[in-house]
Simulated assay, not measured.
Amino acid sequence: MSTVVETVTNLVQPIVAHHQFDLVDVEFVKEGKSWYLRIYIDKPGGINIEECALVSDEVSEKLDALDPDPIPQAYFLEVSSPGAERPLKKPEDFDRAVGDYIHVSLYQKIGASKVYEGTLEKLTAETLYLKVNLKGRFKTFEIPRKGIAQARLAIKF
């Protein structure tokens, strides 16, 4: 985790918790010539634009008060919902996703692929059990958590 992401995560967590929101993710990325500090928040039932603006104002105020500035370059601050395909990163994200349709990218192939979409049937501390539709036949894959590069909720078409 970058120093900026760590610093901002530590700064944002109490603000988000105070409002009883969940901190989903913090990223600091360069796109083209611009830098973006993105903070994703959520709550049961979803987050709205006013709540994002509230957190944005509070985070901006706190960041401006830090000395030395943890982000020396110019950047855009964005506070938003993670959307329908929210990332699954923390153990509690996976716990909430049991029974949901998810997308999983792996570091190494399991079976014929490094990418699977299916229903998260259950999980243990070490393994996800993902029920995947392979051409009309369902198969449950046991996916080691340590082998997951990325995971997110997915929309089933």
Rank of each mutant, 00 (worst) to 15 (best):
L88N: 00
D69C: 03
K131E: 08
G136H: 06
S56V: 05
D22E: 12
S56D: 06
T127A: 03
L63K: 04
I143D: 00
M1R: 15
F157T: 08
E27P: 00
F21M: 09
A84L: 15
G83F: 04
K90A: 08
A74S: 04
M1L: 13
P82L: 01
V104T: 08
L153Y: 09
I110D: 02
G32Y: 04
S2K: 09
D42N: 05
I110C: 00
L88K: 00
E27L: 12
V104G: 08
Y36H: 11
E117Y: 10
E58G: 09
V12H: 06
K89R: 11
A151T: 01
L134T: 13
M1P: 15
L123C: 04
S80C: 13
H19P: 06
D95K: 02
A149R: 10
S60H: 08
V98L: 07
F28V: 00
H19T: 11
I71M: 10
T9A: 08
K33A: 08
C52S: 07
A149L: 12
Q73I: 09
V5R: 10
E31N: 13
G46C: 05
Y116K: 05
K43R: 13
K122G: 00
K109N: 13
E31P: 03
L37H: 06
I155R: 01
A125S: 11
E85W: 07
S81R: 02
R137N: 12
T119Q: 05
S105G: 15
A151C: 04
D67S: 12
V55M: 09
S80R: 05
K135P: 06
S113D: 08
M1E: 13
E92R: 10
R86C: 01
L128N: 06
S113P: 00
R137V: 15
I102A: 03
L130P: 03
L37G: 00
I102V: 12
G45C: 04
K62I: 14
E51K: 06
M1Q: 15
W35S: 06
V8Q: 02
D100N: 03
E121M: 09
A74P: 04
V5E: 15
K114R: 11
I148P: 02
L106D: 06
V8K: 03
Q150C: 02
I47M: 08
Q20C: 13
I39Y: 03
Y116Q: 04
G99V: 01
I15A: 14
I155S: 01
L128Q: 02
P14H: 12
E27F: 14
V104L: 01
K156S: 14
E50Y: 12
Y75M: 04
E58P: 02
E50K: 12
L63W: 05
S105I: 14
R137F: 13
V55R: 00
N10F: 14
V115N: 09
